[in-house]
Structure formats: structure tokens, C-alpha cells
């Protein structure tokens, strides 16, 4: 869902670039030096994971996972995705140079919004669930109770994932539509063709979030919304 060079009008390019630069600056301000390796490695992992194809009937799809990236990185999602897009452009010449800012906004902003909206739910979920979901089989929670607990995290992930990709789809379509009458049919087609992807992204972000919360709960515990979650855990260690 990258927009390429030459499609969108230059005023949109200028506007999006300004927004993108301020967003990246905003994200960088909220990063501590100690978090940089973690953020870079996560960004690299997303880059690597984007080659995985999910089989869907006779075709297959790539995942974006920006909703998940938002939940994991918070404001740092902007520099992380920007670095990823830059590398993509640099290494593969893929993605466009002038539209770098626009593509960043279209991808990262919904991810960040997903973080702002759904992180509080995840926090609540953390407070209410017994500390380790999978850890000890001896923990005597009722089976159905545990089942619901387990799926609440999944549900939060599902919503965040679907929300982020739906947001990206709409923003890409909107960018196209803003660039001229000519692109409106294409934009409509794009939204329709990608509708199933909204559900699929949701399912995957749900599964992965569940996975991450059970293996690395400290990533999500106790987050001050406008700070990088990773940062929070390392300060915890330091004190």
C-alpha cells in the first residue's frame, strides 16, 4: 500500500512531509539512549517479518502489523517505521522518495492512534489478570474464566490491528482522492479489495499480542501513554 512518486499532488507531498518530520521529531524526543537498540531491533524484525506470506485460499498476503508496532513502541513507532521505509527505498529503490513522508504518515499515524486508544484497555487487562497467564498450571483460576482472560488480550489485539490497517487504507485512499478526480475509482477499488485484510490483520495482531504478553509482559506493563513502552521497562530496571 505504498503510494509511488509522481502520483499525489505536490501540495499534499509538502503537507505530509511537514507532518512526518514533526511526528518523527516527536517520537525521537521520547526515546532514551538506552532504548535505541531495542527499537532498532524491533524495527528490523518488522522489516524481516514483512516478507512472510500468509496463505489465503489461492492467493497470499503480506502483513503490515502497524497496530502491533504501535502497541509495542508507542511514539517511537514514527522513527521506527521511517527508518524501515528509508531502508526499503534505499536498498530496493522501492517506495518512492518524495512520498516518504506521506507513506510514513499513512502507515504510522493509525498505528500510533491504535496505541493511544487500545493501550489503556491493555493496561486494564494487565491489572485485572493474574500475573502470569500461562505460567503455572497450578494457579487455580476457573477454566472458563481463564479462557475469557486469554481472549480479552486477543480481542484488544484484534481491534488494534484492524483499526490500524483500516485507518491506513482510508488514509491511502484519501491521499489518492485528494490528488485528483482520476484516482477516485482506483481508491474505491483499493479499499474494497483490501477489506478482507482488515480482518486478517486483526487476527494476526491478536495472536501475536497474546504471544508477546505472555512471554514479555514487561513490555506492556505500566505505560505512561506518551512515552515509549520500552523506556518504561528499562527505567524500572534501573531504579
Amino acid at each position: 500500500m505504498h503510494i509511488m512518486d509522481g502520483v499525489v499532488s505536490s501540495s499534499l507531498v509538502v503537507g505530509a512531509t511537514i507532518v512526518a518530520v514533526s511526528a518523527v521529531g516527536f517520537g525521537l524526543k521520547r526515546i532514551e539512549p538506552d532504548d535505541i537498540p531495542k527499537i532498532a531491533l524491533l524495527a528490523a524484525a518488522f522489516f524481516v517479518a514483512s516478507v512472510i506470506r500468509v496463505p489465503i485460499g489461492p492467493t497470499s498476503a503480506h502483513l503490515m502489523l502497524t497496530g502491533l508496532l504501535g502497541l509495542v513502541l508507542g511514539p517511537a513507532i514514527f522513527p521506527a517505521i521511517f527508518a524501515g521505509l528509508m531502508l526499503q527505498t534505499f536498498i530496493f529503490g522501492f517506495g518512492g522518495i518524495t512520498v516518504l513522508g506521506l507513506n510514513l504518515v499513512n502507515m504510522a499515524l493509525p498505528g500510533f492512534l491504535a496505541y493511544l486508544i487500545f493501550m489503556p484497555f491493555l493496561q486494564k487487562e494487565f491489572q485485572s489478570r493474574a500475573r502470569d497467564l500461562y505460567a503455572s498450571s497450578s494457579s487455580s483460576g476457573h477454566k472458563t474464566f481463564r479462557f475469557i482472560q486469554k481472549n480479552r488480550t486477543f480481542l484488544i489485539g484484534f481491534c488494534a490491528g484492524s483499526f490500524a490497517i483500516a485507518g491506513s487504507l482510508l488514509m491511502v485512499a484519501f491521499s489518492l482522492a485528494l490528488s485528483g478526480q482520476a484516482f477516485i475509482p482506483v481508491a474505491k477499488f483499493m479499499v474494497l479489495a483490501n477489506l478482507p485484510l482488515i480482518v486478517i490483520e486483526g487476527l494476526f495482531v491478536g495472536v501475536i499480542l497474546q504471544f508477546l504478553t505472555s512471554l514479555k509482559p514487561e513490555l506492556f506493563a505500566q505505560v505512561n501513554l506518551l512515552q515509549t513502552p520500552a523506556l518504561q521497562s528499562s527505567t524500572e530496571l534501573r531504579t
Binding site: 502470569d132 500461562y134 505460567a135 503455572s136 498450571s137 505472555s214 512471554l215
Partner: peptide
Amino acid sequence: SGFEKRITHH
């Protein structure tokens, strides 16, 4: 036995 629900990674 009893390891079923343990987190493999840990």
C-alpha cells in the same frame, strides 16, 4: 508432566 502450560521461552 506438569510442564504443559509453562512458557517454553522461559
